[in-house]
Design a binder for these strands. Structure first.
Length: 217
DNA sequence: GGCCAGGTGTAAA
DNA sequence: TTTACACATGGC
């Protein structure tokens, strides 16, 4: 298979490769918790292995809570997240986001229930990918995260998309057509995770090889 | 040494 | 409105 009719076909092909066997079931560590919100900011233009060091620093320091991070000294936070880079912006953005969540929703649980994509996109340092990562992996909503890996993989199959939203729409549509609403959240979470893992281990530079997908049984 | 990483905001053109 | 660049750090 070197042509895709829809995203469902891609999903099924990736699933046969069993790419998530060593990850958590829904891929993102600490799925459904506040930690995902922090991780979503920290991982911007940064390798995940670097993010785990920072997340660990915060957990060890007993600071991985909405309340603690809304009050932390920016300089202290910068030191704790230094391993993830872009520390000036990320430190400020994390603190601002935590304060806004408390102000607007009061608690992480309420935020999880009530936040909208529009609200997230209005926060400094939160673009479409970060917003959707938070919605899908922290708030457990039926939203598919797409990223540069997704665009690269589909480009290898001959697809080009105008922007983030069109790429997302294409990815979500094929899954929605084949799945019940009740499992969409997990499907999307899984789909994005498989794409990331596939592209990470089947690329040279920014060139993605679709060999393993194409020759899947 | 140069390129890349689970992007976003800002300033030129 | 689009494009280009800065942002920090560390692995390869």
């Amino acid at each position: 298979m070197t042509e895709l009719s829809d995203s469902w076909e891609l999903y099924k092909a990736l699933e046969r490769l069993d790419l998530l066997q060593n990850s958590q079931p829904l891929w993102w560590p600490q799925h459904g918790t506040f930690e995902v919100v922090v991780g979503a900011i920290l991982t911007q233009n940064t390798q995940w292995t670097r993010v785990t060091v920072s997340l660990n620093n915060l957990v060890k320091s007993d600071l991985m809570t909405l309340e603690a991070l809304s009050q932390i000294d920016p300089e202290i936070l910068m030191e704790l997240i230094r391993p993830s880079g872009l520390i000036n912006a990320k430190s400020k953005n994390i603190i601002l986001l935590c304060r806004s969540i408390i102000e607007e929703f009061g608690s992480f649980e309420a935020f999880k229930q009530d936040v909208t994509r529009e609200w997230l996109l209005g926060q400094k340092g939160v673009g479409p990918e970060t917003a959707d990562s938070i919605l899908c992996y922290a708030c457990e909503r039926s939203v598919m995260v797409v990223d540069s890996y997704t665009a690269r993989l589909l480009r290898a199959f001959g697809y080009e998309f105008e922007n983030y939203d069109e790429l997302q729409e294409w990815c979500e549509r094929g899954i929605r057509e084949h799945c019940d609403e009740l499992i969409l959240q997990r499907m999307f979470a899984h789909f994005h995770g498989m794409i990331v893992e596939y592209v990470k281990s089947n690329s040279k530079g920014k060139e993605v090889s679709i060999e393993r997908i194409s020759s899947a049984p």
